[in-house]
């Protein structure tokens, strides 16, 4: 089972929901797909057992074989290769690693080498299994790392995915193929605007979802109205509380600071399980 936690707007509480849901269930696999700004590990403090680099392939040219025909540059959709009369230059940061240049080189002068763009780490905390990815500073492409994180999904376990904010490539990569997505929002005009965008994405991806309204007593009623009109289930509401905000700021899960929330998160899980059936 895969449950992803997403939100169009940032800072609505994705990580809070993901880690509290994971800790309340207990025996789960938590995957942090926000590889640009991962935060789950701050709250879980897992014991890291292994760390593996993530690479993308980039071409390297054997100039002793190259006859400067220019085919590689011609087939490169990303303009990452400059074929000059007596030299060939590769601009690695423009390369998407598609492999076309190597395949088409008539002289077989191109081989692919690995370029490190980030890493994946796995660990555990009690019976919670943790997998997280991290993009290297200055790298633009998060998707290959998210893919790697998702390759570690354990089909026999409950997998909870903490997705990055937004509605573009990284979010899509993270939530696609989930059995259910918890869309976290706050009842403000910004929250609602970004939630509607996420709803459209999830519908296009055919991922079933429900809305969780965080800080539900700040803002206005428009989010609830929207969900009612669109027949979207509201699966949980969490009112604003200074002690929740404080626990969060210290890197503490809600269910530790306010133990009564453990039951509520278990109820959330039961609710999701019912809906997946």
């Amino acid at each position: 089972m895969i449950i992803s936690i997403a939100s169009g707007k940032g800072g609505t509480g994705k990580t809070t929901i993901a880690i509290n849901l994971a800790l309340a269930i207990g025996k789960v696999h938590l995957l942090d797909c926000d590889v640009e700004e991962p935060n789950s590990h701050i709250f879980i403090k897992p014991q890291i057992n292994s760390k593996a680099p993530v690479y993308i392939s980039v071409p390297e040219i054997d100039k002793s074989k190259c006859d400067f025909c220019g085919k590689c540059s011609e087939v490169c959709a990303y303009k990452a290769i400059a074929a000059l009369k007596t030299d060939v230059l590769i601009f690695k940061e423009l390369c998407h690693g598609c492999g076309a240049c190597e395949y088409f080189c008539p002289q077989k002068a191109i081989k692919e080498v690995n370029r490190n763009i980030g890493f994946i780490e796995t660990g555990e905390k009690g019976n919670l299994l943790f997998t997280g990815g991290k993009l290297n500073i200055g790298e633009a492409m998060a998707s290959p790392i998210i893919k790697e994180v998702k390759n570690r999904v354990k089909p026999e376990m409950i997998n909870i995915i903490d997705a990055p904010p937004g509605t573009s490539c990284s979010m899509i990569e993270s939530v696609s193929n989930s059995d259910f997505c918890v869309l976290v929002t706050e009842p403000t005009p910004f929250g609602l605007n970004d939630m509607i965008l996420s709803v459209e994405v999830l519908r296009k991806l055919n991922v079933p979802f429900g809305v969780l309204i965080n800080r539900s007593d700040l803002g206005d009623d428009k989010t609830v109205e929207y969900c009612e009109n669109e027949n979207i289930p509201i699966i949980m509401k969490i009112p604003f509380a200074k002690n929740i905000a404080k626990a969060y700021s210290q890197g503490k899960p809600i269910i530790e600071a306010l133990p009564e929330y453990r039951k509520k998160f278990i109820a959330l899980y039961e609710n999701i399980k019912e809906r997946i059936k």
Binding site: Y78, A82, L84, L94
Partner: peptide, 28 residues
Amino acid sequence: MGGVGVQSGQLMSNKDVKAVLTGNVGPN
């Protein structure tokens, strides 16, 4: 959308230009 400096540079090479005179040139 990207790689424009690389392509324009390659064009100069194909045209056998010996010098380029311009305002600004980026790293690629």
